[in-house]
């Protein structure tokens, strides 16, 4: 059941990435300005759907699935945070968020 981690990790990565992008601080770093309200609602909804799906899959795997899920989620969150720290624009591009060039 540990292989569930391979399914859960990308789902969590997508969810955490959307969540991060919906936060003004990270949106600024990645896209050049604060997150507009309609985009923020969409990103938040997207984020929670991805994370909820990941949780459901983890529960299907029962105890081993939950352990795999929790550990994969941590790793995915770390990947998002790392990316935000060194290459924030990549995250914006991945989510097809318009990047404002210039100051």
């Amino acid at each position: 059941m540990g292989w569930l981690g391979f399914v859960i990790a990308p789902l969590c990565f997508a969810g955490f990435a959307a969540m991060a992008m919906s936060m003004d601080r990270h949106h600024r770093d990645a896209a050049g300005g604060p997150c507009p309200a309609p985009l923020r609602r969409r990103l938040r909804r997207l984020a929670w759907s991805f994370l909820a799906t990941a949780a459901a899959i983890a529960l299907i795997g029962r105890s081993v699935g939950i352990v795999a899920g929790v550990l994969s989620a941590s790793m995915a969150a770390a990947a998002v945070a790392g990316l935000l720290g060194v290459r924030p624009r990549v995250l914006a591009r991945l989510l097809a968020i318009p990047v404002r060039r210039g100051p």
Binding site: G2, W3, G5, F6, V64, V67, A68, L71, S72, S74, M75, A78
Partner: peptide
């Protein structure tokens, strides 16, 4: 949960990364 004897290779590496963290 602590001994991770149930863990296959992928989960073992996750425990390892967790330990490093």
């Amino acid at each position: 949960l602590h001994m991770a004897a149930f863990a296959g290779p992928a989960l073992r590496w996750l425990y390892f990364l967790g330990g490093l963290s």
